[in-house]
Design a binder for these strands. Structure first.
Lengths: 347, 347
DNA sequence: CGAGGGTGCTAGAACGTTCTAGTAGCTGAA
DNA sequence: TTCAGCTACTAGAACGTTCTAGCACCCTCG
C-alpha cells in the first residue's frame, strides 16, 4: 500500500514541510535533495525519510526560477514526422548524462514554428534544438541572437552567428545510392525528389553529380515528389507510364519509397526484378521484414548526440564565446547505405 | 531589421526593466501584461511599447510559481505512436481556448511511463492526460490520488477514484466491421488481434460477439497479431497457408492491416478481389490513395476534446468534488466505419 | 594555548512573477 | 462641505526554491 501523500492542508508539500518534520532548516533539506555535499550521513537519511513520509517532490519551476542556470534544453519537433521521433528519443538519451532536462514543443496543424519556439523561450530554456526547421533564415538568426540554437537536418547556405548546424551529408548519401545501383549494372536511374523539404536540394544535387560522374548524364531524370507515401505513389505512376522505364529509382525518403513500391506491386511490376528501389532515412519502416527496403541510413542517435553536445558545449564552455572557431559551425554526419531486398541487378 | 533584444547587462529583461523604462511600478506592468483591468489606456500603451523596445518576454516559470493556478495540463504520450500524434494535435487545439497550456512528456525507449509522469508532476501540472497508458491500475490509482487524471484509449475494469476515462467503443467498432463484411456476403472472416495492447481485448470480444450474432460462430478465427506492420505481415503469412482461406480479415489497427495487405499483394492475392481487409484507427496511413484502406475510424479530435474537457471540468468546477457523479467516470466515443477500397463482395 | 582549516548546519536574501491592501485623486450625491 | 465610490496606480509580501554568508564546533599543528 503506497503511503498517503498527506499534505496536512491539501496543498503540495514543500521544503519547509520536510524541514519541519526532520527538525532541520530548509537550506539543509535543499542540500540533501540536490545531493550536494554539506550534510552529514545520519541527517541526510533522516531528511530523506521525512521527504518520503509526506510525499515531497521538488518543484521544478521554483528550482529553475531560483538557480541562475535552468539546465533546460528546448526541443522543437514535428509531431507527425517519424524521423523526428527517433531524434527526440536520441536527444532524451543524450541530455540526461549531461545533466540537462528536455522541454518539448511540437509543431502541429494549428501550431506553427513561431508559436512552438515562443513557448520554449517563455519556459526559460538555455538553448534551442530545432528539428528540421522550415522558418526563414532571418527568423532563425533572430532566435540565435537571443540564445544558442542548434538546427538539426536543415542546411544553411551561410553561417549565422549563434546558430550551429548538425546534419547528414545528404549529397553523399545520394551518391552512395547511385554508386550502389551503378555497381549492380543499372544505367537508367530516376530520382523522385523531395521538393523544398530540408535536405531535398542536396540529395538532388548528389544524384545529379553522381550520375554525371558515371557518364550517365543523359539518363538523369528528376520527378517531383515529396515526403509522404502519397507523393511517392503519384510519382511512381508517372514512371510506369514513361518510355523507356528506368530500371532503378532513388526516392527522397523511406515513406516516399514505400509509396513507389506500393504502386509498382499493384501494377505487377516486381521489385527488384523489374525495377530496383532505394529509400532514404533507414526509418523503422524500411527495416520491416516485408518492406525490406534498401535505403540510405541517417544515424539519428549520432545526430542527436552531436546536437546536444553542441548545445551543452556552448553553454558550459564560456571560453568558446571568444575563440569562436568559424570553421566549426556545422557537423556533417556521413550516411551509410543499408543494402536490403529492394535492389538487384537489372534484367 | 528586428530590434536588438538589448538587455543592458546581457541578462533577460524582467518586469522591473520594463517598469523602469515606462516609469511605472512592476505591479502595473504585470497588470498590463496579463491584460487584466486596472490600467489606463495611455499608460497601457506606454508599457507595451517599453516591453517591445527591450524585447521583454514574461517568465512562465516565475508566473506559475506565484499564481496558485498553473493552468498547465500534463500530457504523456508514446513518441513512436502515430495515433498519439493525432491526439496530441487535438489536445493542443482543445486546451488553448480553455486557457490551458500543455506540457509534453514522451514515453520512449529509455524513458518509461513512471519517468514521464514524474517530470510532469515536478512541472506542477494541475492535471494529467495519459495517452494509452500501460501502467498497472495500482500505479494509475496512486497518481489519481494526487491530481485529476484522464486516461485516453485505455479501458479500466473498474472505476478508480480521481481517474476518468475517455475511449472509443472498440467492441462496437469491431462489430461495425463484421456487419459491413457480412453485408457484402462474407462468412469466413478472420481477426488478426492486438495481443495485450490497449483496446485489443474489446475488439476481440466485439468480433466474436458479432460473428456469433450472425450465426457464424464456427468461422471465428483469431490470429495473434500486434500493433505493427511486422506483426500483421507475419499473421498474414499464416492466413495464406490456411485452408480454407478466409475471404475477409479484420486487423487490429491500420499499421497491422498494412502489413497484411503487403503480404497479400506480394503473394499475388488481390484485394478486395480475393480477400477483403479492414483496419482500425483511420490514421493518415489508411487515407493514402494507394492504400485506400477500409477502416474503423477513431475520432481523435473528439477524444482529445473530451479528455481536455474532463480535465478542465475537474479543475474549474469545484462543486463536482462533492456531487461526483459515479456514472459519469468514462466517456465512450462511437467509432464510425469508413468504407474505402479494400473491401468488396467475395468471389 | 592559539591559529588555521575542515565539517555540518542555519539565517536570510535572492529569483521574477502575482496578489493583497492599500493610497491618491476625481466625481457626484447628500 | 463631506463622504462614498469609483479608477489608476503602488508598496510590499508572498510563491518554493537556491545561494551567500557566516556560526559553532572539532580537529591538527606549531
Amino acid at each position: 500500500m503506497p503511503e498517503t501523500p498527506a499534505a496536512p492542508d491539501g496543498k503540495r508539500p514543500t521544503l519547509a514541510d520536510v524541514a519541519a518534520r526532520a527538525g532541520v532548516s530548509t537550506a539543509l533539506v535543499s542540500i540533501v535533495m540536490r545531493e550536494a555535499k554539506g550534510a552529514g550521513a545520519a541527517t541526510r537519511e533522516r531528511v530523506l525519510q521525512a521527504a518520503r513520509d509526506i510525499g515531497y517532490r521538488p518543484d521544478a519551476r521554483a528550482r529553475l526560477l531560483r538557480s541562475q542556470r535552468s539546465r533546460l534544453l528546448g526541443v522543437q519537433f514535428g509531431l507527425q514526422q517519424p524521423f523526428h521521433a527517433d531524434l527526440v528519443e536520441g536527444i532524451y538519451a543524450a541530455a540526461e548524462p549531461a545533466g540537462y532536462q528536455i522541454a518539448l514543443s511540437a509543431v502541429a496543424a494549428g501550431r506553427g514554428e513561431q508559436r512552438a519556439a515562443e513557448t520554449l523561450l517563455a519556459d526559460r530554456c538555455e538553448a534551442l534544438v530545432l528539428l528540421g526547421p522550415q522558418a526563414p533564415a532571418a527568423r532563425l538568426a533572430e532566435l540565435a541572437r537571443q540564445l544558442p540554437v542548434v538546427s538539426v537536418a536543415r542546411r544553411l547556405r551561410s553561417p549565422i552567428p549563434g546558430l550551429e548546424v548538425v546534419r547528414t551529408a545528404d549529397d553523399e548519401g545520394a551518391r552512395q545510392a547511385v554508386d550502389h545501383l551503378v555497381g549492380l549494372g543499372h544505367r537508367d536511374i530516376a530520382h523522385v525528389d523531395g521538393g523544398r523539404a530540408p535536405g531535398a536540394a542536396d540529395r538532388r544535387r548528389g544524384y545529379r553529380t553522381a550520375m554525371n560522374r558515371h557518364g550517365l548524364g543523359e539518363h538523369i531524370r528528376v520527378l517531383p515528389g515529396g515526403l509522404t507515401e502519397e507523393e511517392g505513389a503519384s510519382a511512381a505512376r508517372g514512371l510506369l507510364a514513361a518510355r523507356p522505364r528506368p530500371t532503378a529509382v532513388l526516392a527522397f525518403n523511406d515513406r516516399c519509397a514505400t509509396g513507389v513500391l506500393d504502386v509498382f506491386l499493384r501494377s505487377g511490376v516486381t521489385v527488384p526484378g523489374d525495377i530496383s528501389v532505394v529509400g532514404f532515412d533507414d526509418s523503422h519502416l524500411a527495416r520491416l521484414a516485408h518492406i525490406d527496403l534498401t535505403t540510405v541510413g541517417q544515424d539519428s542517435a549520432r545526430l542527436a548526440r552531436l546536437a546536444v553536445g553542441r548545445a551543452v558545449a556552448r553553454l558550459e564552455d564560456v571560453a568558446r564565446l571568444e575563440g569562436e572557431d568559424a570553421a566549426a559551425w556545422e557537423d556533417v554526419v556521413a550516411p551509410r547505405l543499408v543494402v536490403r531486398g529492394t535492389t538487384g541487378a537489372p534484367r
